[in-house]
Design a protein around this nucleic acid. Structure first.
Lengths: 189, 189
DNA sequence: TACTATACGGAGGGCCCCGCCACTTAGCAA
DNA sequence: TTGCTAAGTGGCGGGGCCCTCCGTATAGTA
């Protein structure tokens, strides 16, 4: 008994590819019907493979999220825990600011259907992957006490959302992240 | 020759009142038709008074923005320039996080029709009002060099957007603002 | 009171999301 | 190879929203 029929898998793959382009072109609320049209399938098929818009976003960004998680894991052994955390935060910021729709997806799955499988949603994955970096940095005294991984991810998604309409989102987002890291107030005392 | 007919003024006022409620209830992309229905006017009338959704948002938030600008002006005389700036930033954050749709409106008018009157748009007004506070704080060495009023407003709108779906947006936003002010890295040296 | 520019509302077209259901077809078994 | 069956598909209809156009009503004036 095949888990999924061959044509279904084919359609899934085509839809994912088309969706990626459409979302890159028109943002997180690209037309699902347009995606179906470009993929050469009926609109019901989109809905069958991706029950909600959020599910589609999740699927489209899955690889990218996993790459970021892997990056975090690779940085886990670094001696300089502060540098490791900052490098990862910078990478996440770059992705969130560059890949259209990602930031919105991250904010939205915080408040999606509560019944849904929230274990594997993008923001949960990122949180889980980044947590060790934060903990190690905190233990080293390289992080302001009380700062959590959730705080950091929220700040990053916020920065990405705010810079979305900027001429050069990536640069601006990185700039704002840098400000956030050192703080707006100059180091005193 | 009256600038505007009495019935037009009446409809404008009713629409504004209804729109405020609807936007508070359903966010920045509340249905314009629903607003028209609740106000008891045709949908074309909404469009006549507010050519774009952005124009409607601008009108709805106008008073609040002006209040914030007045607040900034009142703080202009404070001796403690750092405290003055921080108080204002906190006030802006509170508004952006509390009033649904305001943050989105702020990000959107950065990238609205370029031909439109961008002189009086909400973000421009806030920028203009906050600039003196930033300048004075910078002169006092109470602000990290290079930080502009534009940066700060972008950070605040970002924080507001990211905390929108949080159970307690106001508290969370204030918390993130505090982090941003002191910086994620602890003061060193 | 009569007139006119101003403002109004509804109809119609286009696009989209969503759910339903009859039909096709992939993959298995004889 | 040939049927069989359930998984998978696509189109259709309903409802909603946005937007534009155009005939009509009315506020304000002469």
């Amino acid at each position: 008994m095949p888990v999924q029929r061959a044509d279904a898998r084919r359609n899934y793959a085509r839809l994912l590819a088309v969706a990626e382009q459409e979302i890159a072109a028109h943002g997180a609320d690209a037309s699902l019907e347009q995606i179906a049209r470009l993929a050469g399938v009926g609109s019901a098929t989109v809905r069958r493979h991706f029950p909600s818009r959020h599910a589609l976003l999740e699927a489209v960004f899955r690889e990218r999220i996993e790459t970021l998680c892997a990056h975090a894991r690779n940085l886990g052994g670094r001696a300089d825990t502060r540098a490791a955390l900052l490098e990862w935060l910078s990478a996440v910021t770059a992705s969130a600011a560059t890949i259209r729709g990602l930031a919105i997806a991250l904010t939205r799955d915080s408040a999606a259907d509560p019944a849904e499988a929230h274990e594997h949603c993008a923001s949960a994955q990122l949180t889980e992957a980044g947590e060790p970096l934060v903990r190690r940095a905190t233990d080293d005294g390289a992080l302001t006490p009380g700062v959590t991984i959730t705080d950091l991810i929220m700040l990053i998604t916020g920065i990405a959302l705010a810079t979305e309409h900027h001429p050069d989102p990536a640069t601006e987002a990185d700039r704002l992240l840098a400000l956030t890291v050192v703080g707006v107030s100059p180091r005193q005392r």
